[in-house]
Design a binder for these strands. Structure first.
Length: 310
DNA sequence: AATCTTGACAACCGCGGTACT
DNA sequence: AAGTACCGCGGTTGTCAAGAT
């Protein structure tokens, strides 16, 4: 079996594109549109691989490309998005209109990675001490600047990934956290005392406390204790330290980005959707701006009842 | 002035996902 | 259901200019 090469290598130009090639490609796409990259070079008369044409168009020739320095605001956003999404450059780029994944990736590797790396260790030396064995990894390839090592996860076994220390939005194995919001009981304005739900296990108590704001919309009332179920190993390895170091919003997003599954029942979808939408708005996210990637809400809407990343 | 080093960024490579046959 | 083609993604490499020695 096996895949044939995307294009024959013989007789094709490689390396930097010439202005003439750019013009040919631009003219062709203006007339025929994007897509069918494999056949494009032949039809356009370019001695280039289709993949190369696609890359050149997407990263350089597209008319909506914003060229020039990355602004401070964009930089801040990239840092925040990277914290949430890891090296998901296309997702990050989707939130920065006019910027390409390649550009952001390069910018990170040459500027932000180093900057964030330094900030991270300046502000949290104790964390570094706890994970001192991670520093070896950082020194393996001096040409590449690694992002600050997030907690080790059992999701890092992505077969394609050679860099092992990023949190991936698409989790590989974790599927065992369920936050089952209770149905909202009728509002009782006169009720002054509420019987507290049974205390969760210690680890859950930490999470519960962290996510207090989030969970408050799922208000645990007397007969509807908040129902947590999670993979404790995963929780310890993956998220807890992040959650502890994050604000609630990031924690809520971490539930999404870390690849947890969320099992909703009946009427809970709107509650969680509102929370996540509020979070995206408050943190400067614009749903689906310049991107085919879906926001939290659309993900929530995409499934019938349950959704999960596994 | 010549050489070396470093930073920035464009381009390439290999793989996974998925649509199509 | 299986094989294939295509697209898109993320990691890596190549190239060149600017700065340092």
């Amino acid at each position: 079996m096996g895949r044939s090469p995307c294009c024959a290598k013989e007789g094709l130009n490689r390396g930097a594109w010439t202005a003439a090639e750019d013009q040919i490609l631009t003219d062709y796409i203006k007339v025929y549109g994007e897509g069918r990259w494999r056949n494009l070079p032949k039809k356009a008369g370019l001695k280039r691989c289709g993949k190369s044409c696609r890359l050149r168009w997407l990263n350089y020739l597209r008319p909506d490309i914003k060229r020039g320095n990355i602004s401070h605001d964009e930089e801040e956003l990239i840092i925040r998005l990277h914290k949430l999404l890891g090296n998901r450059w296309s997702l990050i780029a989707g939130r920065l209109p006019g910027r390409t994944d390649n550009e952001i990736k390069n910018y990170w590797n040459t500027n932000l990675g180093k900057k964030v790396h330094n900030d991270h260790y300046r502000s949290a030396p104790s964390t570094r001490n706890k994970n001192s064995n991670q520093s070896d990894h950082d020194n393996k390839n001096p040409n590449m600047v690694s992002p600050p090592p997030p907690p080790k996860t059992n999701m890092e076994s992505h077969p394609k990934t050679k860099s092992h220390d990023v949190v991936r939005a698409k989790a590989m194995r974790c599927s065992k956290i369920f936050i089952t919001p209770p149905p909202q009981p009728p509002h009782k304005p006169d009720q002054t005392t509420v019987e507290p739900p049974p205390p969760p296990p210690p680890l859950l108590a930490e999470l519960s406390s962290l996510c207090n704001g989030l969970l408050s919309s799922f208000t645990p009332e007397d007969d509807h204790p908040t129902d947590f179920m999670l993979d404790v190993n995963m929780m310890r390895d993956v998220c807890l330290s992040d959650l502890l170091n994050s604000d609630l919003a990031a924690a809520a997003a971490g539930l999404y980005c870390g690849g947890f599954s969320y099992s909703n029942d009946n009427n809970s979808t709107n509650d969680s959707k509102d929370i996540l939408e509020d979070w995206t708005v408050n943190n400067g996210f614009q749903p689906n701006v310049g991107s085919n990637h879906h926001g939290f809400s659309s993900i929530l809407e995409s499934g019938g009842g349950d959704w999960q990343f596994v």
